[in-house]
Write a protein that binds this DNA or RNA. Sequence first.
RNA 1: UGGGGCGUCGUCUAAUGGUAGGACACCUGGUUUUGGUCCAGGCAGUUGGGGUUCGAGUCCCUACGCCCCAGCCA
Length: 556
Amino acid sequence: MDLKKEAQENFITKIINEDNNTGKWGKRVHTRFPPEPNGYLHIGHAKSICLNFGIAKKYNGKCNLRFDDTNPLKEEVEYVESIIDDVKWLGFKWDGKPLYASDYFDKMFDYAVELIKQGNAYVCDLSSDEVRNQRGTLTKPGIESPFRNRSVSENLELFSRMRAGKFQDGEKTLRAKIDVQHSNLNMRDPVMYRILHAEHHRTGNTWCIYPMYDWAHGLEDSIENITHSICTLEFEDHRPLYDWYLNCLNAYHPQQIEFARLNLNYTIMSKRKLKRLVDEGHVDDWSDPRMPTISGLRRRGYTPESIKNFSDAIGVTKRDAIVDVAKLENSLREDLNKKAPRVMGVLEPIKVIITNYPDNEIEYLDAKNNPEDESAGKRKLAFSKEIFIDKNDFMEDPPKKFFRLSPGKEVRLKFAYYIVCENVIKDGNGEITEIHCSYDPNTKGGMSEDGRKVRGTLHWVSAQECIKAEVRLYDRLFMSDNPENNGDFIDDLNPESLSVIKKAKLEASLSTASTKTIYQFERTGYFIIDSKDSSVDNLIFNRAVSLRDSWARLNR
RNA sequence: UGGGGCGUCGUCUAAUGGUAGGACACCUGGUUUUGGUCCAGGCAGUUGGGGUUCGAGUCCCUACGCCCCAGCCA
C-alpha cells in the first residue's frame, strides 16, 4: 500500500472536516490515546492508536499518550512501560512526554470542591451494597440517598476529611447530585470519588481517594485541551455525564465521539480474559506469539506497517463488527511479500541423494534474494550430492495433480538442477529414509536449455552445508470463530495452536540471521527469530504466517 | 418491558436523493525457477412492510433483529 496515501475518510474525519469549516476549534485538532495501564495493548488498541495518531497526523494536529491511571488496585509500572514500547514500535510519536491522569489529581480535587460549593456534589455514607439497592433498575427509578441534602459546609468538611484519610475504604463516597430517577443509570448520582487506601504506582501514598472514570476523564481531556475525545461505543451512555461535569464547571469542553471497537474472529480481545490466559499459563506470557497483543504480534513477526495498513483497511464506524482474521493475515503477507528476503528452509527434512553427482563436491549457485525486488540482490547457495527436501514434497503414489517429486517424475530444485526420482529406500517399518535421484548437469541454475518444462519446483538445502534449527508453527489460539459465544472460552482453546519442529534444516546463511528481519522460507511462509527463546546455539524461528497454499486448499 | 446505539455481498467498508463501488474470502483462467506474487475474469448485498418523490441504501412512518448500560472498573 502506498504509505503516502491519506488515511480513508470516515464518519469521524467528516466531523472534523465540518469542525474545521465552521472553525469550531479554530482549525485545531488534538486527540489522545488514553490507555489504562492494567494490561498489555492488543490489536484492538492498535486500531484506536492508528485512529487517534492517524487523525493528528492527517490534520497536522497533536495526539497525546495519556495513561488513565485512576485505579491503583489494577495498575502497574510494567504495563505503562509495555504500552510506551508498543506505541513507539508502531511508529507513532506523541506530543511531549507521556501524560498521566494522576498528574491532575490536585486539579481534580479542586474541581470537586467547586462542584460541592455549587451544591452539585455531596458526600454519601451509603455502602456500595446500599447504593446498588437504591439505584433502581433498568426499568425502575432509584431513590435518593438520605445524605443527599447535606449542607455545603458539611460536605466540604467531610470531603477534606476523606482526603485526609479519616475514613476506611468504602466508608464514604463523593457523589454528583444529578437525578436518581434519570432513565440513564449513569446519571443517577454517580460516584465521583471512592476511598482506597492503596499505593499508586506514581503518586505512592499521597492519596487515599481516587477519582472515578467519568469524573476524571472529561477533566483530563479538558486540561489537555483535547478537541476530539474518541472512545468506544460502550461509553455512549456516559457522554451525558461527561458533558454534565464539564458544563457545571464551565470548563473547556472537548467533544466525545464513539466508534465501534475491533473484534476478530477466532480471537478474544478482552484484557481481563487475556490476563487469564497468562495467569493460568495457557500461553507463555503477554507476548506469546499466539496472543493478539501488540507484543505478541511483534514476536510473531508482524510489522508495524502491516498493522497500520490493516487498521486502515477495516475502517471506522459505529457498527459492531467482527473482522475476519484472514484480513489481518493478508495485510502481513502483502507487506512481507515486498520486503522479506527469500531463503531455503526445510521443515520436515527427508534426504535425497543425487546418485550421479560427484562425491565430496560442493558448488555454489546463485539465488535471488527477492523476486519482487531486484535491488535485494543475490546470494550463493551450497549444492552437494546429498540434500534435504521437505517430506510433503514427495509422494510415492501421488494423485493426478501432484506436481512435486514422485517415482519417475522430474522436478526442479530451485536455483539448482532438474532431478528425476529413481528409487526409494525404506527402513524396516516401511518408512522412507532416502530418495535416490539423478540430476541433469545441463540444467544448472534450474533451467533446461532444450526448453523442457517441469511442473514442480522444490526448495532444498545441502546436507553438507546447512544448519539445524527449531521452528515453531502457530495456528489460531481458539477453535471456534467466536470463542466467547458459549461457555468458558478456555474450553475452546486449540490444542494444536503451537507445533514445534525440533530438527528443521535451514540454509547456512541463516546462522547469522538478523533478529530484526522477517524471512520468507521459499514456498512455506514468513519466519522471524524468536526474540525470547532463540540463541546462537539453539536457533528458533517463529512462523508469522504461512504462504497462501492453493495446493492445500485443493485438498480440503 | 427504561435509556442509548446499530442494520449494505459470506466478512469488513463506500455511495451531495440520481448506474449500489472497493477490500478480504471464495471460484475460473493466464503468467511464473515459490501450487507464492502478479494479471484477467466470476460469484455475491441495501432486514421486512408502507409512504414521499420523476427517482430512495439515503427522507418519513412502522415492524423486526442485533449490541451496550443496573462497578465505590475503565
